[in-house]
């Protein structure tokens, strides 16, 4: 890693933090490879199915994956520091349950939404504190966090709770028209805003710089005087906040609180982040890459829905196979960078 890369002023985008040890455009290779492969998949789909080639199909990818996008953003922060957060799926479900049960009890959405975000952020901060100050591995602490959050879901209610609040319903069913017949949902705007804020934080603030430095080499970062301890706790807080926001978006999407929801979503988020070019050991990766990773997972599902003939197990095999092809091609195109 070039020792000068983290000392350059943050305004120079060309030498911005990220793949520090590489020069010029080669840094972006894995993420660009992912983007290129995504477009290739879209083209293949358009060739195979006539109704695939519509702008709405592309926009549906965004509409149907707003919560996964926000989760992937939060997960990117954590993975960039070399950690991992397994609790995100359970926190999404917990947010949904808290939301649904409080709304059913008659609370006002303007009180429920901040409370849910506070709970998510609080849980994340708690996990971060335990990881940092007790020096326990993130895997275990977040796994315990996952059990705790999922367990609280069951305690709140075993049955699913419908959400009938007018604000939530309008957020769920509103259609923001774009050119022609195309539309997106308000959730997409929220997700895009989250991505934009995350992009800004990671590439134009000291906090973002510390996150990358932590992943590169924690010891060096500490010796350089960066706020290692605070940042480590903060990334888990960020992940918790993102999980809570994702839970709200999921509530808008499905208008229900269900204790078994979002099981396995953490693995989807991790897969999206890794597909997007981030290394699990930390220090390299882009949040926009994670967004492309989410789109890739979405288009795989779309393929399968359009095909319409795959049985349940062939669905799993094809998902695994497509994921494999993707990873191999990405490795092929970016092998020089590792």
């Amino acid at each position: 890693m070039s020792p000068l890369s983290t000392l350059t002023p943050p305004l120079k985008k060309s030498s911005a933090i990220g793949y520090g040890r590489l020069r010029g455009g080669a840094r972006y290779a894995p993420t660009l490879a992912t983007l290129g492969l995504f477009l290739a998949m879209f083209a293949v789909g358009a060739g195979m199915y006539p109704s695939f080639l519509s702008g709405q199909v592309l926009l549906n990818l965004f509409i149907d994956n707003t919560f996964l996008t926000v989760l992937a953003v939060g997960m990117t922060f954590v993975i960039l520091t070399g950690g991992i957060d397994l609790s995100v799926g359970a926190v999404v479900a917990l947010s949904m349950m808290v939301c649904a049960s409080l709304l059913q009890a008659g609370w006002n959405p303007s009180m429920v939404i901040p409370l849910v975000i506070l709970i998510g952020g609080g849980l994340g901060t708690l996990m971060g504190l335990v990881i940092q100050y007790f020096d326990i591995q993130p895997f275990i602490v977040t796994l315990a966090g996952m059990f705790l959050a999922r367990g609280l879901c069951y305690v709140i209610s075993l049955d699913s709770i419908p959400v009938t609040d007018p604000f939530f319903t309008s957020m769920a069913q509103a259609r923001i028209p774009l050119a022609g017949d195309l539309f997106i949902s308000p959730g997409v705007l929220i997700a895009v805003a989250v991505v934009a804020v995350a992009f800004f934080i990671l590439h134009h603030t000291r906090f973002g710089r510390t996150v990358y430095a932590l992943g590169g080499n924690e010891h060096s970062a500490m010796l350089m005087g960066l706020n290692v301890k605070g940042t480590k706790v903060a990334v888990y807080a960020v992940s918790g906040l993102c999980s809570a926001v994702a839970g709200l978006l999921f509530s808008f999407y499905s208008l229900s609180g269900y204790s078994l929801a979002a099981q396995g979503m953490e693995l989807d988020a991790i897969a999206a982040v890794v597909i997007g070019g981030t290394l699990l050991t930390g220090g390299t990766g882009y949040v926009l890459g994670s967004v492309v990773g989410v789109l890739v997972l979405g288009i795989v599902q779309t393929f399968i829905a359009y095909d319409g003939t795959l049985s349940s197990w062939w669905t799993k095999i094809v998902i695994g196979g497509l994921l494999l092809v993707f990873i191999l091609l990405q490795r092929l195109f970016s092998r020089k960078t590792y």
């Binding site: 519509s54 149907d64 919560f67 999921f250 999407y253 929801a261 099981q263 599902q301 829905a305 049985s311």
Partner: peptide, 24 residues
């Protein structure tokens, strides 16, 4: 028959139904 398996996830079923609507 256009068959879609949701892998027990609600969001996958919503996506599938949406794509069925798309496919008319």
């Amino acid at each position: 028959l256009k068959f879609s398996d949701a892998q027990q996830k609600q969001e996958n079923q919503i996506k599938a139904i949406r794509s069925f609507v798309q496919q008319k």
